[in-house]
Amino acid sequence: MKSVIFETGARLLVALIFVFSLFMLLRGHNLPGGGFIGGLLGAVSFIVYSLAKGPAEARKALHMAPETIAAIGLGIALLAGLLSFFMGDPLFTGQWFWIGGDSYDTAVFAPNSILVFDIGVYLVVLGGILSLAFAFDEET
């Protein structure tokens, strides 16, 4: 499928959807959203790109094999879960650190393992879906 209109539109759409996917990932911290839905949206953005320009271009834009992204994501999610192990809690217990305060209300910045886990999930979903989608796209 080669369409000038779609290709031009895709340029705008891809960036928008991808940014929205990151927004969804971060929003999921306190509100509905999160790594899974973010990863799906991120995958959609690359699928749109691959429909417009072909899977070879999309793979180039991704810079990395989607399977590798999924594996790295799985590793990140595991490490986020293992962090609690080093802090003496059972596996996958959420770990919070307060910077500039001593509780959620006073802290300026609150890094935590839950967000890291979500990022891992995001990458797993993105990589997993894209590896399937690209494979199908290349077959046809």
Partner: peptide, 22 residues
């Protein structure tokens, strides 16, 4: 106590991730 149960599970997963990247 929990780590004795967790380790047999986590080790294959980590191995899988490293083996896949390499």
């Amino acid at each position: 106590m929990s780590w004795v149960l967790v380790m047999p599970l986590v080790i294959p997963f980590i191995t899988a991730v490293i083996a896949f990247i390499l």
